[in-house]
Every structure is written in C-alpha cells, then in structure tokens.
C-alpha cells in the first residue's frame, strides 16, 4: 500500500492530505498552491485521491437547491400566527 510519508517534490503525501480541502477551495497562497501542484504532478496517488474527493464534493453540490423549496401554507400560517402573538407579547 502507498505510504503517506512518501515525499515528492519536497512535500510528504501526508502534508498534501492536510491541505487538500484548502487546495480545492482555492484558499491557499499562490506559493503553497505551486508547491502542492508540483507534488501532484509527480504523485499519481495524491492526484487521483484529490480528484476523487473533488468529484464527491461536486456530486454533493449537484443537489444544491437553486430554488428554495416552499414552506407548506399551513406551516407558514401557523408560524405567522404564533409570531403575531409574540409581537404582542402574549406568549
């Protein structure tokens, strides 16, 4: 099995793993991105794993609601009724 302590381009796979989310989110400095990219260019294991995590997140985001689901009318009415009492400090 591949070793998380393997070093490619001066960076261990373990360290790439630790920064993977920030890398996918574009939250790293340009310098760090370049360092990680150099590792990924030479490490098939990390490149494939990173692509797999990215694909999982992409599949999850495919379910992102672009139009907000409506609250059932009865539910919305009950909420407003209760708030109306709260506004008057009845409850």
């Amino acid at each position: 099995m591949a070793d998380l302590d393997r070093v490619v381009a001066g960076i261990a796979c373990r360290d790439v793993l630790a920064d993977l989310s920030d890398f996918l989110d574009g939250a790293l400095t340009a310098t760090r991105v370049a360092e990680l990219q150099a590792h990924l260019d030479g490490c098939d294991t990390c490149a494939r794993f990173g692509a797999d995590v990215a694909a999982t997140m992409q599949a999850l985001r495919a379910h992102r609601v672009t139009r907000e689901a409506a609250v059932p009318p009865v539910t919305a009415a009950r909420l407003r009724d209760r708030l109306a009492r709260a506004y008057l400090a009845i409850e």
Binding site: A2, L4, T45, C46, D52, V53, T56, A59, H63
Partner: peptide
C-alpha cells in the same frame, strides 16, 4: 486520525472514475 479517514476514503487505491455521474450523485446523498 486523518490518516485513517483518508485510507478509508480510498487514498492509495484507484479512483471511482468508472462510476456514472448520476449513480455517484444518488449515492452521495
């Protein structure tokens, strides 16, 4: 540990490229 989570997630093994996008999306949910 992060190592254990990553290994369970498939670090070190081939990816799931052959899984159809729709199957993956449903399974992810």
């Amino acid at each position: 540990s992060l190592d254990d989570i990553a290994l369970a997630a498939g670090w070190g093994r081939d990816p799931l490229e052959e899984v159809a996008e729709r199957q993956r999306a449903d399974l992810v949910q």
